[in-house]
Amino acid sequence: MTRVPLLSAQGLNVRYGAIQAVRGIELSINEGEIVTFLGANGAGKSSTLNALVGLVPVAEGRVLFDDQDITDLAPERLTPMGLTLAPEGRRVFGGLTVEENLRMGAYAVNDVDRRMAAWDMVYDLFPILHERRKQFAGTLSGGQQQMLAIGRALMCGPRLLLLDEPSLGLAPKIVGQIFDLIALLRERDVTLGIVEQNVAMALEVADRGYVMAAGRVVATGTAEELRQTDRLRAAYLGEE
């Protein structure tokens, strides 16, 4: 029996008006894996993630999650199914307290026990969020906001969590903490898809990766293989 991926996309295209951001890519993420998406700015990584969760429309192609066609589903339909995204730039609700942000993360969870478990897990992973739970999220430091953004996304108990540039704009020490956390999440059986500009760090935690350039996947393989190919360098330097 072949293993069915948790999420897969076939011939995925994303367009913004006349601009084609993603050009017919194929990808898959298996249960329990950490998969990273690498590439220079404008390669189409974020567009890909946004299209997977329904934030931007899929122009062509199909997206399957847990064997169901989710191509045209809105993000608010996907969260209850176990697919969510922690967006680029953190985007915490600054005018809400830390606690309210997390409460919103669990908005789609109706089961009280599952919700309690999520609170325990998030406060256990991020003691700082518990400490600051009454504080407005807008007053947190960048690193704390990123932890809140990830914690908020974890509150819905996702089977697949997509992280868009979790280390963007953070101090090196904090970046290390974020990646430690990602390693911790793996131990808790959260499947992850990560868009990251910090290539070395990303390949260290990831099992597999896709290298994108100009809206296409130009290389794919295990993290080990990608570390050794020239395609990665080429993709960043814009040589195709």
């Binding site: 967006p87 309210e100 908005y107 819905c156």
Partner: peptide
């Protein structure tokens, strides 16, 4: 309040 601040992210919360 969340939706007033960032509708797209609110939708990501379900």
């Amino acid at each position: 309040r969340a939706a007033a601040e960032d509708f797209a992210v609110a939708r990501l919360m379900g």
